[in-house]
Every structure is written in C-alpha cells, then in structure tokens.
Design a protein around this nucleic acid. Structure first.
Length: 118
DNA sequence: TAGGTGACGCGGT
DNA sequence: CACCGCGCCACCT
C-alpha cells in the first residue's frame, strides 16, 4: 500500500537525535486520523533495516513499543545513544528533542510522494 | 460479512 | 497533570 511507502519516506526524514509521534507521521503522510495504522505498520510491515522507528513515541511521550525492539529498554537505549534526554519520570523531553515540522514540510513531502509515485 | 484488535489521540473530568 | 471513555481505521479471523 502507498501508505507504507509514504511512511518509509517520512520516517527516514526524522532527524538523528529527534523524536516525533505516531499521529505526526500519519499527518505528514497525508493521512489524518491514521496514527493507529502507523503503529500497526511498524509492528507488522516488513520495512527495511535502518528505519528509525525508535524515534517515534505516543502523544503521552511514552515509549509504548518497548517490547517490539527485542526487549524492554532497547528503544530507550537507542535514543539515549543519540543524545535524547528523558525526564525524571521516564518520559521523553519533547520540549528539547521533539521534531518540529515547518508548514512547508507538508508540501515538501507531497512533492516527494508525487516524485516517488506514491 | 460481522466482529475483534491494537507501537494511537483527543476531549472531558 | 492523570485518568478514563470514546472515536478512529486497516487488518485479521
């Protein structure tokens, strides 16, 4: 499905050391209200290696997919390795590491999708 | 075809 | 804030 190919393009655009949410990925894919599908795809769809899925957290800033990275704490370790800091309660500090998308980002992705035929 | 299931999110309390 | 209910939607029985 095109949605998965769009997801791959968007996820690969998440900057090193930054974090975003399932809903934001869906939005950038041009599919509002598809946050659950992003989560579904990450756990079922065979994306190639190197897809930075660990940079995606839920809107509560919690690492909900811990068990899907091969064990508890793996996602946290990957993020710490790229310099992402956590709050005392264990949640991600989105204020400092959240991926901010400029309004132009949406049209930029639309252009990329068209160019890629998805 | 109908019903259940989530790596989710928002609005109300 | 935290907690809870409800809406969401592609997939899989």
């Amino acid at each position: 499905m095109d949605f998965y190919r769009r997801m791959e393009l968007v996820c690969q655009a998440i900057p090193y050391g930054q974090v975003t949410s399932y809903g934001q990925i869906a939005l950038l894919c041009g599919r509002p209200r598809h946050a659950r599908q992003v989560g579904y795809a990450l756990s079922h769809h065979p994306f190639g290696p190197g897809l930075p899925a660990h940079r995606i957290v839920n809107s509560r800033r919690v690492l909900s997919g811990a068990l899907s990275f091969g064990g508890p704490g793996i996602q946290r370790r990957l993020l710490l390795a790229e310099g992402v800091a956590f709050l005392p309660d264990g949640r991600v500090d989105l204020r400092r590491f959240g991926w901010r998308n400029s309004p132009e980002a949406f049209s930029d992705f639309e252009q990329l999708f068209a160019q890629q035929g998805v």
